[in-house]
């Protein structure tokens, strides 16, 4: 795609921020551990193990989706068809005790099996215990997605969950995420174009 051009730093496109999955402290780049809580992946490995689950598009460990997996799968396939770099997953599962949903999702993305594009992956995790929904992204994907907009989408799908329609909420999330992706892609291309223009002038 950009073989003719130099690879740009993610900082140019940075739209999301990196937070500690445990304490939500904003992380400095290349931090080996959280400066506040000392969080690092090894710590979670000790709790959850070194091998993560096989991630699929839909993982319904609670049987709450009511057989509507196909609709979610269809929506994810649609996005992945248009954005071949991405690998999207969804999971409804009760988090283990002492593990926050954001931490679990982070661990799953890093330790999950058969990830085709792990750094372009996204995982939507719904924790019924804490009534939280989180969307974890790989390094590459998180460069282009605005976190605030993502939070708005999560809030909206949370409304669906409140009504008990988990499948509808997940489908709705991915639909809106698809739109967000397109806008983000347009923005990214514009930024790239501007950057190369500036570089060429220089």
């Amino acid at each position: 795609m950009s073989s003719e051009h130099p690879i740009l730093s993610s900082k140019l496109f940075r739209r999301g921020v990196h937070d500690c999955p445990l304490c939500a402290t904003e992380l400095a780049s290349a931090a080996p551990a959280c400066s506040r809580c000392g969080c690092k992946l090894e710590k979670l490995d000790k709790i959850l193990g070194l091998e993560g689950p096989h991630l699929k598009a839909v993982m319904d460990l609670t049987q709450l989706l009511g057989g509507k997996n196909e609709a979610i799968q269809k929506q994810i396939s649609l996005i992945e068809r248009q954005f071949p770099q991405l690998a999207l997953h969804s999971c409804i599962a009760p988090c283990p005790d002492g593990v926050q949903p954001t931490a679990l999702a982070w661990w799953m993305l890093n330790r999950g099996q058969n990830l085709s594009h792990p750094t372009w992956a996204g995982l939507l995790l719904i924790d019924l215990k804490s009534s939280q929904v989180t969307f974890q992204m790989g390094y590459d994907l998180s460069t282009f997605i605005n976190r605030q907009k993502l939070e708005a989408l999560l809030s909206e799908c949370g409304d669906w969950f409140s009504l008990g329609d988990y499948a509808g909420g997940i489908v709705n999330f991915f639909q809106e995420f698809h739109t967000l992706l397109k806008r983000s892609h347009r923005h990214a291309l514009e930024t790239e174009k501007m950057t190369f223009k500036t570089l060429n002038r220089a």
Partner: peptide, 11 residues
């Protein structure tokens, strides 16, 4: 693979 970029919401 992932540096912890996430968004979370309660419902």
């Amino acid at each position: 693979h992932s540096g912890g970029s996430a968004a979370a919401q309660r419902f």
